[in-house]
Design a protein around this nucleic acid. Structure first.
Length: 463
RNA sequence: GAGAUUGUAGCUCAGUUGGUUAGAGCAUCAGAUUGUGGUUCUGAGGGUCGUGGGUUCGAACCCCAUCAGUCUCCCCA
């Protein structure tokens, strides 16, 4: 007999975990709907050609590929070709259509772009959608990183207004407010990062500067300066970057200082305007009760290289929590251009629900009542009592009370132990005496108190 | 792609310099108790010590290989 196990980087979600996850997903869904976003689902698999080349060289390697079916059914000519391609395949990191032409979804953004292009005639732009589905990556799993995990995205395409950015900030605020998580939303613009590399006189080094800068809160300025040096940035450039990093103050003060430093850079000024306009819209739309702060942070970079405008990232500020970002997003111009639909700009945010789950769990902020299933269990006393129990069960369910009958007429204490483990609020005892009198004994399982009541009273009390 | 570390009962783990028949707790099942759970008590079942070689009179323990898990770096969510 083989020992059962599940593939590396995948997880089972037990009932209590599913409930907690659904609590998070449900909260997000309610918010998305409140802001007028529409639900979208796309297939678990896409054509490999849809996905390759969209996530960079590293990304291509991490796409889960699906072996073609019917490989064994090929005719002789097919077999020869397959043999040849198989050998090529083994010597190279990528695949060939003879062996694989489908792959598991790597994220939700590219399938969304594909969907928008395919359905452009049916959609009303600006189109806002939210999507909550699993994605797969053939990465080496480690703490908090899985090969199968869920993403929760909300995006708007077909509008360049910064009102969208402001609305997405509000979605973050509203969602984390409801989930009781204290957060800080960092905001930056890719245009500012571009301006920064201009300031160094090395616009072509933007990626290097961005990657190094992103590590600021992890390795500190000295570490970043070293990395910049290694990546070939001149002393003069590093000095310029340090000058910008050293700017402190509230958002207005920071933006004013950046304006001063970058006054000769058109993209710098554009980035600053973008951020301040977004914040202005946000002020008008924001609710006074939201606790989370929004902070301009020029060291914020975000990994994906398709962002072109405002970028944001959410971190939990609770002192007990040592966790990276729990959400992020930004604007990407021309995402659909890859599939032939030019000039459509989009902006979106993503919630890292596995991390959000871990944080809520650590802070013990899941609502208590999530853990319950059925309210009551009926003990099975067998014989005529079984039929009596079934009638009662029907009445309870008709009244909307979640209840279940122990299906086997086994020893009493076994049924009671089962009830205890399941954590029912009440156990109902339809035995000989109750049946003859047309009553029911109900036992409160928390207090141990038990009484015999009419069936109507029982239904009323459980409601 | 690089590195560290761990594989012993369903689960969590002991197991001494290599030495009889490999242990504990939890879980399961049975009984004390055929209409009263959580706390008790008694007993039982359950292991090819990840796999394959090697060293040895003798290997869970030492050596080699291999597979798998976990973690770190890279990168990312």
């Amino acid at each position: 007999m083989q020992k059962p196990s599940i593939p590396q980087g995948t997880r089972d979600f037990s009932p209590a975990e599913v409930r907690k996850r659904q609590y998070i997903l449900g909260t997000l869904r309610t918010i998305f709907e409140l802001y007028g976003f529409q639900p979208l689902e796309t297939p678990s698999m896409e054509y490999l050609t849809t996905l390759t080349g969209k996530y960079g060289e590293e990304g291509d390697r991490l796409i889960f590929k699906i072996l073609n079916n019917g490989l064994h059914e090929k005719n002789e000519a097919g077999k020869a070709k397959l043999n040849e391609e198989w050998n090529t395949l083994l010597s190279k990191p990528y695949s060939t259509p003879a062996v694989t032409e489908r792959a598991l979804r790597y994220d939700l953004t590219i399938p969304f772009a594909r969907y928008v292009v395919m359905h452009q005639n049916d959609l009303a732009f600006p189109f806002r959608r939210y999507q909550m589905q699993p994605v797969w990556r053939a990465d080496r799993p480690q703490k908090g990183r899985y090969r199968e995990f869920w993403q929760c995205d909300a995006d708007v395409v077909g509008s360049v207004s910064l009102i969208n950015e402001a609305e997405l900030l509000c979605i973050y605020q509203g969602a984390f407010q409801q989930l009781l998580l204290p957060v800080c939303i960092k905001i930056n613009s890719r245009k500012l990062l571009a301006a920064l590399s201009e300031l160094c006189g090395m616009p072509e080094k933007m990626m290097d500067i961005t990657i190094a800068l992103d590590k600021l809160d992890k390795i500190g300025w000295v570490g970043v300066a070293n990395e910049l040096k290694e990546r070939g940035i001149a002393e003069e450039g590093i000095w310029q970057i340090e000058r910008v990093i050293n700017v402190t103050g509230n958002n207005e003060e920071k933006l004013a200082a950046y304006t001063d430093i970058m006054q000769h850079s058109p993209s710098g000024i554009a980035g600053i305007n973008e951020i301040s306009k977004t914040l202005a819209y946000y002020q008008s739309l924001a609710s006074a009760e939201w606790q989370g702060q929004i902070m301009v942070d020029i060291s914020l970079a975000r990994g994906l290289n398709y962002y072109t405008g405002v970028i944001v990232e959410v971190v939990c500020t609770h002192p007990k929590v040592k966790m990276g970002s729990i959400g992020g997003g930004g604007r990407y111009d021309d995402l659909t251009g890859l599939f032939g639909l030019k000039g459509l700009s989009g902006v979106g945010v993503s919630f890292g629900i596995d991390r959000i789950y871990d944080v809520i769990e650590e802070l013990n902020l899941f609502p208590e009542q999530l853990a319950t299933g059925s309210v009551a269990m009926l003990v099975n006393f067998g014989g005529d009592n079984e039929l009596y129990a079934l009638q009662l069960l029907r009445q309870l369910r008709t009244a909307g009370i979640a209840a279940e009958l122990f299906p086997d007429s086994v020893k009493f204490d076994k049924q009671m132990k089962y009830a205890n483990k399941r954590g029912f609020a009440y156990v109902l005892l339809p035995g000989d005496e109750e049946r003859e009198k047309g009553l029911i004994s109900m036992k409160n399982y928390a207090t141990g108190e038990q009484k015999m009541v009419s069936i109507d009273d029982c239904v009323t009390q459980l409601k």
